[in-house]
Simulated scan of single mutants.
Amino acid sequence: MKHSLPACPRHIGILRLSALGDVCNLVPTVRALQRQWPEARITWIVGKAEYSLLDGLDGVDLVVYDKATGLKGMRAIWRQFEDVRFDVLLHMQQALRASVLSLGLKCDVRVGYDKARAKDWQHWFTHRQLAPHPRAHVLESFMDFARLLGVEDTRLDWSLPVPEAAYEEARQLTGDQPYLVISPCANPRLRNFRNWSAEGYAAIIEHAWQRHGLKTVMSGGGSPLERDMGEQIRRLCPDIEIIDAIGRTSLKGLLALLDRARVVIAPDSGPVHMANALGTPTLGLYATTNPDRAAPYCWRNQVVNRYPDAVRRYLKKTVETVSWGTRVRHADAMALITLNDVVDHLDRLMAATDDTALAEDATEPSHEG
């Protein structure tokens, strides 16, 4: 039996728990749904950290599921929604845990990814699947859910809520001087291998100061790996003032810090997508993940892209012959990014965005202060 899609949904459920970058990429889909059906109620089940980032998103009921609570937390969600029935549930989290969670939510139709994009057998848990969209960027994959429901206006709009208290938090760290944000580390997960070198970052910090008059703010979480990276970078820049914000901001404070920055440099991680959502010029450093799939969307032409080289060297294949989304899990892959790569891209990005001009292919998102 083929479940029909609602022509005018009254209550839309969204299930996407993580991660920070992914939920940023999903917000334009939420905005597209709101433009199409301004009277519809939208409920988004989201992870704990992601809730802190999105808190205050207008027109959306955010409900937290903390994966650390396991089955107990699932049962709490099911009880919370036992009297709720969604016209459509958009199952956007490709994880078995999320699929099990989805089964306890009542809905007329549960929509998931097409078989080619589905992971962890997600297509077994959904009634309807997206139309195939080979080689899609993550943001476009999310937007495909809106397209399946009949949404045609897919203009990009984030309008992320950033309270004034967050801007004050950022100003306390930076003052009013222009600055570059470097977020040197990606999520410290096993075999992630997305981080560039401390030596490379230190050289870029010196170049940004000498060439562009930009001080550097280092951001990140408080993990031992991130703190150690920050210490290494500072030791390599003894004569340059660096504002250390690693582990010293809330997520809203980080949003404000990124919003006020002249430019942001980071590997494939939450901050490049957060900066992208705020319209801040963003320079992503990519070698272990494919930027065609996961670059900061509005700044794709500005990415340092050594992914094809990494695929050739460490997988002995080409980008065209590996499956979409393949990661190069090799500790030396990010070393393929040279200092000249980053210097050249930074200089071009600064020139392209001088006097608030956008990069050639950028669509300027909006946000709320």
Rank of each mutant, 00 (worst) to 15 (best):
C8R: 03
P9V: 07
P9C: 07
G13A: 08
S18V: 05
P28R: 05
L33Q: 11
W37T: 09
E39F: 11
A40F: 12
T43N: 11
I45G: 00
A49T: 06
A49G: 00
D55K: 06
D55N: 09
G59D: 12
D61R: 13
K72R: 15
R75H: 01
I77N: 02
R79H: 10
Q94E: 14
R110N: 14
G112L: 08
Y113S: 14
D120H: 08
F125M: 07
H127D: 15
H133D: 11
L139M: 14
E140H: 09
L148K: 06
D153H: 15
D157C: 02
P161A: 01
A166N: 03
E169I: 09
A170S: 15
L173R: 13
D176C: 12
Q177P: 02
Y179S: 00
L180K: 04
V181S: 04
I182F: 01
N187K: 04
P188C: 01
R191E: 09
R194V: 01
E199P: 08
I204P: 09
W209R: 09
G220D: 10
G222Q: 12
R227S: 01
D228P: 07
I240L: 14
R248Y: 03
G253S: 02
R260P: 07
R262P: 05
V263E: 04
D268R: 00
G270M: 07
H273T: 08
T282R: 00
N290T: 10
P296T: 04
Q302D: 13
N305K: 11
Y307Q: 10
Y314D: 13
S323F: 02
G325F: 07
T326A: 01
H330R: 00
V343N: 01
H345Q: 15
M350T: 04
A352E: 12
D361V: 04
T363K: 10
P365H: 06
H367W: 10
